[in-house]
Design a binder for these strands. Structure first.
Lengths: 206, 206
DNA sequence: GTTTGATTTGACCAAAAGGTCAAACGCACG
DNA sequence: CGTGCGTTTGACCTTTTGGTCAAATCAAAC
């Protein structure tokens, strides 16, 4: 790879193709399961050519992961402390569910990484992620204090949104094996909306 | 390996040690990520010695997986159509949560397999698992028909129990990174019980 | 159109990893 | 206490895989 100058058109195209191919392969096979050859041919390149753009398999993985983390937390960041509590939470859940439907590879890449102990992103989890969740949990707590939502453990509430929505991407094959023909994303939104409305609607005032 | 006779004490001990070590390694690294050497040394054996008991890495993995599937569905099987609906569902959720706490390796092995497309257990999912879920979903449906629980999509209800409980095992490092010192399993049972009580308590009679 | 730097490739290397085998070892039973 | 079968191992083989390199090719600026 040439020095750091403005990337040529070819560089842009090939780097993008590599990252996309790598997302495909890493999300489907995990880091160790993926081979450089697989990624290269999925990107339409030879292995040495791929390694002309990235110095190593590790580097490709790091790049894909960095790109993912960049957007992964956006839905939670967008939870607005000034908004209507229940609607904000429902909107967050919907955004996460849409990500499971539209970006399942990203979800599975993340799942692969976490399930195997998050060796490469443990830092981000305990700093950036923790900080963000702490902040939003405080918002949820304040809403409960104000009686605007029912009081539940705010961290577990957030975990529940993660697990319920990501399940449809990460465990896709299981869900589809059980549902048969039915599209998982047909009934999921309504089910989850009902669930969170019933969980969080504040008790009637005395 | 000698012919199929009654297994000697040494055979029993070593096979058990291998399966336990393999569960350790496979659940932490996935199939491709695990090496036969790792499993062997985790079991306190040399690689050729391990391969004296199992013919291949695949065979070890199959054995571990088979052992897992054998018990993985027990909690759902135990859901009693004759029991009190809400209590039956809560008890099922609790059993699954206990499995996440007590058998996290098993949960992660399963998660690894599913996330990567379940190449080796797809059959079981679309036959045994589907059949069991169909059966229990019908029970849930009947309970809703009788007005004994609120009506929700029975399949998604089951998915929700899977995802909410397994999350604590599969995403353990993330949960702990966010919670800091707090034990995830301290508040989870109450949170989940509240969630399902509010979701499923039938609407007051008119 | 030639030159220069970017891009691509075939050939190659070394390490890792799954698996084999013959020989050595050891336990238990006659 | 020796023999036979179950067990263990060191040495070795082959394939896969991450990575290198020099040479060939291509694109575009001059």
């Amino acid at each position: 790879m040439p020095a750091d100058r403005a990337p040529t058109r070819i560089q842009q195209k090939n780097r993008a193709a590599i990252l996309d191919a790598a997302l495909d392969v890493f999300s489907a096979q995990g880091f160790r399961g993926a081979t450089v050859d697989q990624i290269a041919s999925a990107a339409g390149l030879s292995k040495p050519n791929l390694l002309y753009y990235f110095p190593s398999k590790e580097a490709i993985h790091a790049a894909v992961l960095e790109q993912l983390l960049d957007t992964w937390l956006d839905p939670l960041r967008a939870l607005d402390p000034e908004g209507e509590p229940l609607e904000e939470i429902l909107a967050y859940m919907r955004r996460k569910l849409e990500m499971s439907r539209d970006l399942p590879r990203e979800s599975r890449l993340f799942a692969n990484e976490i399930v195997q102990g998050a060796p490469r992103i443990h830092d981000v989890l305990s700093t950036d992620l923790k900080q963000l969740v702490d902040e939003k949990a405080a918002v949820l707590e304040a809403w409960a204090d104000a009686g605007r939502i029912a009081r539940v453990h705010p961290y577990h509430l957030i975990f529940s949104i993660w697990s319920l929505t990501q399940h449809y991407a990460d465990f896709d094959v299981q869900v589809r094996a059980v549902l048969g023909d039915e599209d998982p994303f047909a009934a999921a939104p309504e089910f989850l909306e009902t669930l969170y409305r019933r969980l969080l609607t504040p008790p009637a005032r005395a």
